[in-house]
Design a protein around this nucleic acid. Structure first.
Length: 497
RNA sequence: GACCCAUUAGCUCAGUUGGCAGAGCACCUGACUUUUAAUCAGGGUGUCCCAGGUUCGAGUCCUGGAUGGGUCACCA
């Protein structure tokens, strides 16, 4: 739909007029199937290294197609660039080669129009490998002007709202999303090769569980029932472990009704994976091997630059207890016996902010988040999370104030979360009850009671290691992207007013 | 949710002390058969984010709002 203002816009009107004149000449402005033989990159890869004479000798016929992105008319001959998914290639169109009619079609084509060119490969005097047109086929009309050719599309809002323009104008953007795709396919292949079964579980839940987050609520009309968009995949995959599927994973979207920032989008992609008979140490090995493998396969290196930091994924990754890290950075020893009151006093002493009702474990976690987290640049497995913040993880045998859980930190950010899964249904029920009490005291993100899940555990779940990796943050890290919006094709934005 | 910044032509951006709305690219007309941010000559195409206010006069100053970005909060 054109707005009132746009109907008067000369640039749009000119293009509509050109569309009409194409029709008058019997050319379909939104043409049909076109068979090409080469992409731009295939031609450049094959011929760019050859000399002008060598290329001329081969006289290689090619058919290419793409969007017209630059045009240099020079009287009875013109140079231009066509862009396809692989890149750009120059074309050279001469009136004496293509004839008066096609030459006019070509010279009246606008930047943004789609063209097919049949011709031969050659090299110009200035050394650019190009295609000399024998035939110009008009493929599709562009009724709107593209962003400026040199400065491109800079406006961040427009780049996110009209990602297609961003992809046309900014080659780095396309590269980032190709890398994202390779990261995910490499991950999938690795897990498939290691015997994991990929599954799909519901994204609409009756109880929003498996994580601590506020959910989106939706409604099923026929059942007259509220449903929650999932905040995690966890509880369904564990039911599959109960069902005897021993190595299972899902890569999928989860939804959390929380703030938006450079590191948070309301919907994001997680890998969750569960392995029967394993524990959180196995999950550390798997995480380390998987991410290192992805870096090697996709980036061709184990050394990653992120925001000015050089991160070495090649050396063995540090594995440190949360309490030991807090001691290292603040001198406070949470391994020893400590009352909630003493912990609170130490927090005040060290300027660690707390919320009312926090106990020993919450306070340790606040120490870690406020004093340590951002300093963990090189990959570090932080394990031994306090019981209070880990309602789905097994207690540590030696010290039940902690759990057999870890989070992976790289460049000061959480990239993975894993634990030895709690498979004792009696303990799990107590944890849920504690969470429900927290909820009634105002913690909106506390975990709800889930009787159906407890019933599944009561049938018996083998000891199991579980792992979650935030794919978007992994892609951010591996593509040196500052914002999660730069690794999501269509990030969540407010509705345009 | 709080604070800071931005919003001017299709795009990238200038706009002085409050005094006729600007440039480059794109587009239109013409010249040009190896150019490449092609070049040369000519042409300005606009809801200055929106709504109020101050003023003889507002793109500019004031108030409120919208959208976006950043920082923080939130995100175990």
């Amino acid at each position: 739909m054109m707005s009132q203002g746009e109907e008067q816009n000369e640039l749009l009107q000119v293009r509509r007029d050109k569309l009409e004149s194409l029709r008058e000449k019997g050319i379909d402005p939104f043409g049909a199937k076109f068979e090409r033989t080469h992409t731009a990159k295939e031609i450049l890869d094959a011929y760019d290294a050859l000399s002008k004479e060598e290329i001329e000798e081969k006289n290689q016929p090619v058919v290419i197609a793409g969007r017209l992105v630059a045009k240099r008319k020079q009287g009875k001959a013109s140079f231009a660039h066509l862009q396809d998914q692989s890149g750009r290639i120059q074309i050279y169109v001469r009136k004496d080669q293509v004839g008066d009619e096609q030459y006019e079609t070509f010279t009246t084509a606008d930047l943004g129009d789609w063209l097919g060119i049949s011709g031969v490969v050659f090299k110009t005097n200035r050394g650019e490998t190009s295609v000399k047109a024998k035939e110009v086929t008009f493929l599709s009309k562009s009724l709107r002007p593209l962003p400026e050719k040199f400065h491109g599309l800079k406006d961040v809002e427009l780049r996110y709202r009209k990602r297609y323009l961003d992809l046309i104008m900014n080659p780095d953007v396309k590269e980032t999303f190709l890398t994202r795709s390779r990261i995910i396919s490499t991950m999938r292949r690795y897990l498939d090769d290691h015997g994991y079964l990929e599954v799909e579980t519901p994204t609409m839940h009756t109880i929003p569980g498996g994580a601590a987050a506020r959910p989106f609520i939706t409604h099923h009309n026929a059942l007259d029932m509220d449903l929650y968009m999932r905040i995690a995949i966890e509880l369904h995959l564990k039911r599959l472990i109960v069902g005897g599927i021993e190595k299972v994973y899902e890569i999928g979207r989860v939804y959390r009704n929380e703030g938006i920032s450079t590191r948070h989008n309301p919907e994001f992609t997680m890998l969750e994976l569960y392995k029967a008979y394993a524990d959180f140490h196995d999950m550390m090995d798997l995480t380390e091997n998987l991410i290192r493998h992805i870096a090697r396969e996709v980036l061709g290196t184990e050394t990653v630059e992120y925001d000015g930091n050089t991160v070495d994924l090649g050396r063995p990754w540090a594995r440190k207890h949360m309490a030991d890290l807090v001691k290292e950075h603040t001198g406070v020893d949470f391994r020893r016996e400590m009352s909630d009151g003493e912990a609170r006093r130490l927090a005040e002493e060290h300027g660690v902010e707390l919320k009312p009702g926090m106990t020993f474990g919450h306070i340790l976690n606040e120490f870690f988040e406020q004093k340590v987290e951002e300093k963990l640049i090189q990959p570090t497995f932080v394990y031994g999370h306090p019981l209070e913040i880990s309602p789905l993880a097994k207690k540590n045998e030696e010290d039940p104030r902690f759990t057999d859980r870890f989070e992976l930190f790289i460049v000061g950010r959480e990239h993975a979360n894993a634990f030895s899964e709690l498979n004792d249904p009696i303990d799990q029920r107590e944890r849920f009850e504690t969470q429900v009490r927290e909820k009634s005291q105002g913690n909106e993100e506390a975990h709800p009671m889930d009787e159906d899940f407890l019933e599944a555990l009561e049938y018996g779940m083998p000891p199991t290691g579980g792992l979650g990796i935030g794919i978007d943050r992994l892609v951010m890290f591996l593509t040196d992207s500052a914002s999660i919006r730069d690794v999501l094709l269509f990030p969540t934005l407010r509705e345009q007013g």
